[in-house]
Nucleic acid binder design. Structure first.
Lengths: 141, 141
DNA sequence: CTTGACCCTGTAGTTGCTACAGGGTCCATA
DNA sequence: TATGGACCCTGTAGCAACTACAGGGTCAAG
């Protein structure tokens, strides 16, 4: 039974495009696999595990740099995991900030959309809300 | 007194980097201003208004393509504003989807961080949560 | 007349892929 | 044995939306 995989199989197993797998190799996130006589990449279970880790981390929104750091840490099994915790906490904080930003934005957009009177553009509250207001209109000559 | 502005002034007035102003001009979002004898860009109040509109729209998360569409619509003052409404609603829906995604993500991250026992990496629940689980461990030989 | 702040063009970098172009390999089927 | 199609290879360019130079020019103050 194959305990090596071609790049396409690896991609299907991890829901990753072939180009993306090669990209991860190029940027040094995934180690180079051995090659077959025909110069095809031949991956093993270690690669599969590593790529799964990468994809799961990416799905959780970690940047490639963070993933790289997490992978390095995951390899140092005896070290304390504070650094891991810190990366996760930092990312969590960033996600929470982003949610707050988007919620503020959502509220503004909701307000705009609610006020739209569906008349002519000249009376459109959305356009109005986007247009420079008092600060400019009241600019002293 | 100046009713024209150099690019740096325009940038300060709209909280936009000079390079970004030039970028907007390059991609046709902001019209080319007249030039001084020394080949400096000389902007007028119209440019200032337009750039303010762009920045405000960008702050609200509209893409440059959406901004372009909004600008076009804003110029057609007699037309009905349905298209404007549609862009805003579409964007609102996208923002709401994104918030939901991020909230799911936040919950997962919170769960991971909460479980971290601060021991060695080998016991780290965060790494564990990121690592490929049963699907692979249980893969039949 | 020089210093320093500002401006100019053009190009390349960022993030995380994705999409070719222009080939080579491999395997099954006719 | 030929051939077709699925797969693989490298290398490069593209996407959004800027940002950051390099290598110069302009202009006002001292």
């Amino acid at each position: 039974m194959s305990d090596t995989f071609a790049i396409g199989e690896l991609g299907r197993a991890t829901d990753t495009k072939v180009e993306t797998v090669r990209y991860y190799e190029r940027i040094g996130l995934l180690s180079q696999p051995r090659r077959t006589s025909g110069n095809y990449r031949a991956y093993d279970r270690g690669h599969l595990n590593r790529l799964s880790f990468i994809r799961r981390s990416r799905d959780l929104g970690f940047s490639l740099d963070q993933v790289r750091a997490l992978l390095d840490l995951a390899d140092q099994r005896d070290r304390p995991c504070e650094a891991v915790d810190e990366i996760a906490r930092g990312h969590l904080a960033a996600v929470e900030r982003k949610i707050a930003d988007l919620e503020a934005l959502r509220d503004e957009l909701r307000g705009m959309v609610r006020q739209c009177g569906h008349g002519a553009v000249r009376d459109c509250r959305i356009i109005e809300a986007l247009s420079p207001g008092d600060a400019l209109a009241a600019a002293p000559g």
